[in-house]
Design a protein around this nucleic acid. Sequence first.
DNA 1: CTCGGTGCAAACTCTTTGCATTGAC
DNA 2: GTCAATGCAAAGAGTTTGCACCGAG
Lengths: 131, 131
Amino acid sequence: MGVMEMNELLQSCGLKCTKQRLCILEILNSADKPLTAEEIHTLTPGTALSTVYRILDKLLEKNIVIKTTIPLSDGIFYELTANEHKHFAICLACHKLKYIDICPIHNTTVSDFTITGHKLELYGYCRECVK
Amino acid sequence: MGVMEMNELLQSCGLKCTKQRLCILEILNSADKPLTAEEIHTLTPGTALSTVYRILDKLLEKNIVIKTTIPLSDGIFYELTANEHKHFAICLACHKLKYIDICPIHNTTVSDFTITGHKLELYGYCRECVK
DNA sequence: CTCGGTGCAAACTCTTTGCATTGAC
DNA sequence: GTCAATGCAAAGAGTTTGCACCGAG
């Protein structure tokens, strides 16, 4: 996602396009894992922590961002709804995350429900810990 | 899960079997959705909130309980790892949860990873909101 | 120019910790 | 009887809010 697209995304939601918002979208877009509010704050120098929270609230409200936990890790994490399809496997022993490519969800249907997205987490043991 | 089984579960983890722990396991076992620490506390009269947190920490540590968030709901929720296989669909409009029976994960394998459990959430719109 | 967005500091809520007491084994 | 578990109160994190100033549209 480029800056232009972020700009349009914000405008289409009726949100003003500020440098703080673009910065946070950029960070979330390039992150390879969900981030905590604190991590996002560290990556946006010059932005108040309360502003980070307010921006995340707006983005949650507009379904641009999703709030999540990572099993066995502390805290609340945020990620782009668009990135949500990056599924991962979590090792119950060493707590490491491993991104996985497979997606067994395609073509799944549920009665009386229109599916627009999904999230999958696998739990188990990685190669090193299963020994 | 009956009281006897809970008893054995605690003992097998080296945890003493107290009435507070049995009560919390009972509550989680009979809950039809993940619960917050506050909700659990309300359902365990006579137990200090700090004790609820300490018990949940122990149960998390032993992988008996899992911490989670529910998209579009506030707070942190706890559920039995054993109940985790109750997948659900979340309506992005009305925020209601709908439990689903299907499980497209069976027989899934990932290289260098031994799968012992999984969690699936579907996002979309329920019958009432999709109109 | 206007009104939403931001920074700062204070308030609030949720969670953890210290210590004395209780109870499971 | 011993040591883990609990209750209470106080401390610590994480998050939200009030208000004055700033800046995108």
